[in-house]
Amino acid sequence: MQLLRDILDKQVVDREQVKIGKVDGLVAELRQGKPPRVIAVELGSIALARRLGTRLGRWTTRLAKRLSGKRQARPHRIAWNKVRDVGVDIEFDIDVRRTKILAWQHWLRDHVVDRIPGA
């Protein structure tokens, strides 16, 4: 499996096939004398911004921290051992309703979109 080709930017779904987002980053563990091992995937605008550049990553982190506090100033991570299937989508053995992954979207809906007339 080629990680960059087969994992990065793929749609992530939970066990109920609810779309969570796309894989924006990979977290690997470096081990002495052994190849690196993937331990988690990262989702969210901060991970995506880091891929596009260090400066943009720092700016996005500061913006997220300012708008929604420190809890949203890190990318969301899902442990690699929760992967159920890698195919067209990457299916994780999690229930998205029990996580904070969609908290940013809920915050935007409640504080921005709901205030737009006709929304």
Rank of each mutant, 00 (worst) to 15 (best):
G33W: 12
V96E: 08
L52R: 10
R62W: 15
R58E: 06
R51M: 05
G69I: 07
G57M: 07
T60N: 01
K22S: 11
R51L: 04
P75S: 10
K10Y: 10
R109D: 08
D93N: 10
D85A: 14
R84D: 12
D24I: 01
Q17G: 06
Q11M: 11
L43S: 11
L56I: 03
L43Q: 13
I20S: 06
N81F: 10
A79W: 10
W80H: 10
R77P: 00
D89E: 15
V88A: 14
E42G: 11
I78T: 09
A28H: 03
R51D: 01
T99H: 02
H76F: 12
I46F: 02
V113R: 06
P75T: 05
V112Q: 01
K22A: 07
G21V: 06
L48K: 15
H111S: 12
Q72Y: 15
A40K: 09
V86T: 14
V88M: 10
D89L: 05
A64H: 14
D9R: 13
A79D: 15
D110S: 09
A40W: 11
L102V: 03
S68K: 04
G53N: 04
I101L: 08
L43V: 01
V41K: 04
F92Y: 06
R50P: 00
V88S: 14
R51Q: 09
K22F: 08
L102C: 02
K65W: 14
V113E: 04
D24V: 01
R97M: 02
R62I: 01
W80Y: 09
K19S: 15
D9P: 00
S68L: 09
D9T: 11
L48Q: 13
R74E: 03
D24K: 08
I101T: 04
Q11V: 13
L56G: 00
A103Q: 10
R74H: 08
D95W: 00
Q32A: 07
S45G: 13
K34P: 07
V86K: 03
R71I: 06
E42S: 08
W104N: 02
I78D: 06
T99R: 03
V41C: 08
A103P: 00
G87Y: 04
I94D: 04
A47Q: 03
H76G: 01
G21M: 06
K100M: 00
T60D: 00
R58W: 11
I39S: 13
P75A: 07
I101R: 11
R66H: 12
L102N: 07
Q105W: 02
A103R: 13
G21N: 12
A73M: 08
K19M: 10
W107G: 01
G25P: 05
Q11S: 10
R84L: 08
G25V: 02
V113Y: 09
K100T: 12
R50K: 15
L56K: 13
A28R: 09
W80A: 15
G53P: 03
G44H: 11
R66V: 01
G33E: 13
L52C: 01
R31I: 05
R50H: 08
E16H: 14
I46K: 07
